[in-house]
């Protein structure tokens, strides 16, 4: 009777095991179908308008401030608000006309870091008439100041790390869509944005909130890596986080070569996958047809 023990045990786990298998298959199928629909980003919190929703403002981090704490005399570009003689006043971009130097009064450290950082550097270059940089942006000022990333009237305080990270991705993506997309495909983006793990690294955890360094120098990048990977050494920074050609600058030839290799290996793996599956599926299908035919013939 001993030999029946495993047999009867198997009878019990058989439905369970195939239940798991079927559930997995269903998971994969629903997953593939739902992938496009579920891949929506939370809305970006950035940007301001001339019109303020006071209900939302009352919930924001700045709710305790009075209008004139930030807007003072309501004089912008030498014009008094509201100027009845200039009705096109409201057609200007609110975030482009506001003097964000006023933020400095409360946010001294952030402001100092911003001035030292990549965005401020880009702004100086765009405003410098001697530079050819203007050709890139068509003469428009593109580099962000405070208001491009922070919605000063509506941004709430006390959000969780994950919620801040998700909103941050939306803000960064409005100018860096390729980098946001490649980050989302990376392990950090998957674990942080998709699965909501607060231990994951969000944009500013590596690039710095106001310094916004592009981390092109390995030594600078290593400092960022080491915050979570203390055992990392210089070559660790060679791991490509933004692994798409669109998110690597055209001047960075070695990195582009690496990304190209990642693409080639992906195509190779995909070809092996497709060929193997074609063989297995075709072989199994023919086998099944023949066996079903034999079975029916004998009836």
């Amino acid at each position: 009777m001993n030999r029946h023990i495993l047999q009867s045990g198997f009878r019990k786990i058989y439905p369970l095991y195939f239940g798991i298998v079927l559930a997995t298959i269903a998971l994969i199928l629903i997953g593939i179908c739902g992938k496009a629909g579920a891949a929506m980003l939370p809305p970006s919190g950035a940007g301001s308008d001339w019109f303020i929703d006071m209900n939302r403002f009352a919930l924001s981090a700045h709710a305790a401030l009075k209008c004139d704490d930030c807007h003072g005399s309501m004089i912008v570009n030498g014009l008094q608000h509201s100027d009845e003689k200039r009705p096109d006043f409201l057609r200007q971009s609110a975030t482009r006309t506001y003097d964000y130097a006023r933020c400095r009064r409360c946010h001294e450290l952030s402001f100092k870091r911003y001035l030292e950082g990549g965005h401020a550097k880009a702004l100086r270059e765009e405003k410098d008439p001697s530079k050819e940089k203007k050709q890139v942006t068509g003469g428009k000022i593109m580099a962000p100041t405070c208001g491009e990333c922070h919605a000063s009237h509506y941004e709430r305080s006390g959000l969780s790390r994950v919620a801040v990270g998700q909103r941050m991705l939306g803000a960064c993506a409005s100018c860096h869509p390729a980098n946001a997309a490649s980050y989302r495909n990376n392990i950090h983006g998957r674990v942080g944005i998709d699965l909501g793990n607060p231990k994951a690294a969000f944009c500013t955890d590596c690039h710095g909130a106001h310094t916004v360094d592009s981390l092109k120098k390995p030594q600078t990048a290593l400092l960022a890596c080491k915050r979570c990977h203390p055992k990392a050494e210089t070559e660790f920074t060679g791991i490509v986080i933004h692994a798409s050609l669109e998110s690597v600058s055209a001047a960075d030839a070695p990195k582009r070569a690496e990304v190209l290799w990642i693409h080639r290996i992906r195509w190779f793996a995909l070809a092996v996958l497709a060929l193997s599956l074609a063989f297995f599926v075709a072989h199994s299908f023919l086998w099944l047809l023949r066996e079903i035919h034999e079975k029916l013939r004998k009836h």
Partner: peptide, 30 residues
């Protein structure tokens, strides 16, 4: 990855990740 990047280039970790994923899909389907 910290240990392996002492001996192999960093982007090999990306290659490993790519191969790991496609091999996994193949294995699961098969």
């Amino acid at each position: 990855p910290e240990c392996f990047t002492r001996y192999i280039p960093g982007f090999f970790v990306n290659l490993a990740q790519t191969l790991h994923f496609y091999e996994a899909v193949l294995a699961v389907v098969v």
